[in-house]
């Protein structure tokens, strides 16, 4: 049984009285420890699928089980608790809070958990050191480079030690060299046991993953599995 199991997931949006089907009966299993890429052309439905896997966007039909939990069977606020404990998000444009320092941004997910300020600080500092930003704890986002901001975003996603990271085009706003550094960091986290699901357009990033799900027109076109991802 997979860590994440999507069963016949469909998503239909209504816009101006018109129904637009974005996903059609998608069934998908992500095993614990997978590093999976969701790939496809723009408008294929991969980002929508990521938000559904992220417990943010209820599917029109189908079911999402994570660690045996029927995620969309939970009430809205319980789903927020679920996200807090199971998921870490990394967004394409980093999405750091501009008026908080790097360490404060990383402490944000801990602010709603029962940790003391000292514990929060220690945890945040530890993950920032892990992503190589131990010397820039008190910098504001606009005082950091794009790669550094992405590292802060990754630190923020892993600080409460969720088993799953969901990343939406994490290298999309970075140059090639920085993108590779970030992918190395993801690979290291994956090797430590984190399950990662990543939306990407960049074929170079496929080098780091063990599963690639190709999506086209809202359906899974094919799934590529590598037994020995480097």
């Amino acid at each position: 049984m997979g860590l994440i199991k999507g069963i016949e997931i469909s998503k239909v949006y209504e816009s101006g009285g018109e129904r637009v089907a974005v996903l059609h009966n998608i069934s998908l299993t992500v095993e614990a420890g997978d590093f999976m890429a969701l790939m496809g052309p723009s408008g294929s439905g991969k980002s929508t699928l990521l938000t559904i896997l992220g417990a943010l966007n209820p599917p029109t039909q189908g079911k999402l089980l994570v660690d045996g939990i029927d995620v969309y069977g939970l009430k809205q606020e319980r789903r927020a608790d679920f996200r807090s404990h199971y998921l870490g998000f990394v967004f394409q444009q980093f999405h750091l809070i501009p008026y908080l320092t790097a360490i404060e941004n990383v402490m944000l997910p801990l602010a709603i958990l029962p940790y003391s300020h000292q514990e929060q600080r220690e945890k945040a500092q530890a993950v920032l050191e892990k992503v190589g930003l131990g010397s820039k704890l008190n910098r504001l986002p606009n005082q950091l480079s794009g790669g550094e901001q992405e590292r802060v975003a990754i630190a923020r996603a892993i600080v409460n030690q969720p088993p799953i990271i969901l990343a939406d085009e994490p290298t999309g706003a970075l140059d090639t060299a920085t993108g590779q550094e970030i992918m190395e960091l993801f690979r290291e986290l994956n090797r430590e046991g984190l399950t990662i699901v990543m939306v990407t357009h960049n074929e170079e990033t496929l080098h780091y993953v063990n599963k690639t799900v190709m999506i086209k027109d809202g359906v899974i076109e094919k799934i590529l599995v590598k037994d020995d991802a480097p």
Binding site: G54, H95, P109
Partner: peptide, 11 residues
């Protein structure tokens, strides 16, 4: 972002 991190409505 805060909601994605697991912030409840009350937060």
């Amino acid at each position: 972002i805060l909601r994605a991190m697991g912030y409840r409505q009350k937060h």
